[in-house]
Design a binder for these strands. Structure first.
Length: 342
DNA sequence: CGAATTTGACCCCG
DNA sequence: CGGGGTCAAATTCG
């Protein structure tokens, strides 16, 4: 039941993805300024529909229990995190980890991190740089051949993991069917720079991968599902992604999306802001903040939760209109340009 | 020379 | 036991 279905599923995903891309393109061509709200809304509806479809498809496959998501697992709390097995920052981590496990049973650290995927297509038409520079600095820490996949999967972590205790990671997997397609899975939220001084690295890891084969690229991206409340965040940022790619002027949509999304959420989370990172205002979303947004208490996320998320996606009010409006207000935001950070 | 990548080994989990 | 994720020594890069 696997290969066949999986194949079909992949094709479906590809088709849907393409549809979504096209819708986005369409949107781009209808310049936002000339679009009536209705039109814009419709376009977004279309995109949203594709996204939902993608979500559903994706979930229908491996759905079993995609995310055990620990109860109210603070997705980002530096303490709960430690995505690494053991040797990492041995002394410190081990101590912390063990303690926390004992106390809170966060045994699933890795899995408790918010996760979402982007599908990035790389076209060799415009000379745009990387498949997508998300504005963060990533450091490759591993590569692995994956069973059944043509291409190896690369593992990246935030360059500032140690400096800022930022445990965000991502995996880049090239699609075997469409080598110009990359699936990027993000895990964990950046607690580091948030567009602070760290000047976005000119070259993102993916870029390199791509340069190997392609060289020039242009990309589109769309985000998909995740687990736990942050899902909303991710989904909402999808909308941003659209707006972003529209302009295609800004190299780091993801970073922008998230940051802003967080800001929109009004996460003034006073949580641990280390002196070093105090420049940014919202790092970790506290569970309560998230549930504020998500509505339902975020205690047990699982399939049922998924359903909720998906159905939530049905109503544009939640994750489409919300961010959209924001963007509409200020379509020419400058805070996103690379120079902004430096 | 410091930082990033490569790559084989190791560990965890299903 | 094997696959996937991470570590860390060696190597390459800037």
């Amino acid at each position: 039941m696997d290969t066949g279905l999986k194949c079909q599923q992949k094709t479906l995903v590809n088709e849907l993805t393409q549809g979504m891309e096209l819708a986005k393109q369409l949107k781009i061509h209808l310049s936002p300024s000339s679009m009536s709200q209705t039109q814009e809304f419709l376009v977004h509806k279309i995109v949203a529909s594709f996204e939902k479809a993608l979500l559903i498809v994706k979930w229908s496959g491996p759905v079993e229990n995609p995310q055990p998501v620990a109860p109210s697992s603070a997705p980002q709390s530096p303490l709960s995190v430690n995505g690494s097995p053991r040797t990492v920052s041995e002394d410190f981590d081990k101590g912390c980890k063990d303690h926390h496990q004992e106390h809170t049973d966060f045994s699933k650290k890795r899995k408790t991190l918010p996760t979402w995927t982007d599908q990035v297509r790389v076209c060799s038409e415009t000379g745009l740089e990387g498949p997508h520079d998300d504005g963060y600095n990533w450091r490759k820490y591993g590569q692995k051949d994956i069973l059944g996949a043509k291409y190896p999967r690369s593992y990246y972590r935030c360059t500032y993991r140690n400096l800022h205790d930022c445990w965000a990671t991502k995996q880049v997997q090239r699609s075997d069917e469409d080598p110009s397609m990359f699936e990027i899975t993000y895990r964990g939220k950046h607690t580091c720079t948030q567009g602070s001084h760290s000047v976005p690295a000119p070259a993102s890891p993916e870029k390199q991968e791509i340069k190997q084969n392609n060289h020039n690229d242009n990309n589109h991206q769309q985000q998909h599902y995740i687990e736990n409340p942050l899902n909303y965040s991710s989904m909402a940022s999808t909308s941003y992604g659209c707006m972003k790619s529209e302009t295609s002027l800004f190299p780091q949509p993801s970073a922008f999306n998230k940051d802003n999304y967080d800001n929109l959420l009004g996460c003034y989370s006073p949580t641990f802001i280390s002196p070093a990172t105090s420049d940014s205002n919202c790092f970790s979303l506290s569970p309560c903040q998230m549930s504020n947004f998500g509505g339902p208490p975020n205690l047990q996320h699982s399939e049922s939760e998924l359903t909720e998320i998906i159905s939530a996606a049905n109503s544009p009010i939640l994750n489409l209109e919300f961010p959209l409006d924001q963007v509409d207000f200020d379509p020419s935001f400058p805070f996103d340009t690379p120079g902004f950070f430096s």
